[in-house]
Design a binder for these strands. Structure first.
Lengths: 227, 227
DNA sequence: GTCTATAATTTGATAGAC
DNA sequence: GTCTATCAAATTATAGAC
């Protein structure tokens, strides 16, 4: 049974995206991200999102036609955040593949921690569950999101390939190498708790630890290391 | 009716755990793992599990009193599989921390790929969603599962600490170091598709790639490497 | 733009036949 | 041990008032 819960404010810790405008639609979106993060897509009732907003369903259905549309928008926003911030680093000139990979992973980690609700909701919903959308418009939007995700992975595959070509990285199939790289960082979505340990300094430390880890994961072992 | 205590091995394609016996309860459990994996906990209807079994609800409710109990058992089984297989490696004598960490991660990866339904269902349900179990018996079972998970992480923290003590690994807080290690491997639950790429050789290759990656992630960079 | 009220559907769980 | 039938609750989405 669903307990009566007091209404909370939107844009609580973890739910707010910095720079998110305060128009109605964005407020609804942020609240949805928060609740999807906490309960997952299927377990979230539209009424839960309304409660989070301190309003009723009417407000949500004014901006979104369905729960699936709402979720798709959260997911799209999450992917766009990644592409917007990591894309420029991937394209920046004057960096070695080492510096580039490290900077990309570090920024990725930072985005997860600072827009946690969106990222975590998106990762949870990455699933086949939504592939069964019969609605054409929704299905197109989902294809677009999957494309964004593939584009994002391409950024990593490219820097890996570059690093291998320059003899800096271990020789792995670039597409395969992106799996542990993204896995090590994306696992933040499972263990990170924005409530505690969310001072800027702690976020920075975690981002550095993770990005250094994945960089070392791509570096050949030093000759002086014993086995 | 109360629940039986013992559980045995299920035996389906994606949910296959090797060494299968075929009692009714285990069949139900394996089918549940399969469906939970595909749709997630909340989106799974008991009728879906019944369909997977080619039967009706009655069969499921004969063995389990609720959907939550069914899920808890899938989760417990997944954790037990990890502890049973990786625990002995963590305790084996005559291995350096390097060899030990690599063997542990490799076995972990292998278990994910060979008991995929159980592992993936468990990772998806790691969530806060189940923490709101009011039922006392279920709540106790959940505490037990969380304890298993903590115990499992301890295995990695211990070998990391050991390796740091011997000057083999980079100096990181052991608990923090386990995050990217487990993340790189557990990310398999997101991208691996047991349908394709599931020949024993491919499973082996992936396990080696991932375990080598996490090992390198813990090794200090060689002195001859340019930055 | 947001609310109340409600229709339509799904679903967890139980009872009792066989 | 499994099935059929059914209920009670929850939930998505809509209609129309304000």
């Amino acid at each position: 049974m669903k307990e009566a819960q007091e209404r909370r404010r939107p844009q609580e810790s973890g739910g707010a995206r910095p720079g998110a405008a305060a128009d109605g639609r964005a407020e609804v979106l942020a609240a949805a991200a928060q609740v999807f993060m906490e309960r997952g897509y299927a377990a979230t009732a539209i009424d839960d999102v309304a409660d989070m907003l301190g309003s009723t369903k009417g407000r949500i259905y004014h901006y979104y036609r369905s729960k699936a549309d709402l979720f798709l928008d959260v997911h799209a926003q999450a992917m766009q955040d990644l592409l917007e911030h990591v894309g420029p680093i991937a394209a920046r000139s004057g960096l070695t593949p080492l510096e580039r990979l490290r900077a990309m992973a570090k920024e990725h980690a930072r985005i997860i921690m600072t827009t946690f609700a969106f990222q975590k909701a998106a990762v949870q919903g990455l699933e086949r569950r939504l592939l069964s959308l019969s609605n054409t418009r929704q299905h197109r939007e989902m294809r677009r999101i999957i494309e964004m995700r593939d584009t994002y992975e391409d950024l990593y595959a490219a820097v890996v390939e570059d690093g291998i070509g320059q003899g800096l990285f271990v020789r792995l199939p670039p597409r395969m190498a992106t799996k542990p790289i993204l896995g090590a960082v994306n696992w933040l979505n499972v263990w990170f708790e924005p409530g505690r340990a969310a001072t800027p300094q702690q976020v920075e430390d975690i981002a550095v630890l993770l990005s250094d880890f994945v960089l070392r994961g791509m570096l050949p072992e030093g000759p002086a290391r014993r086995r």
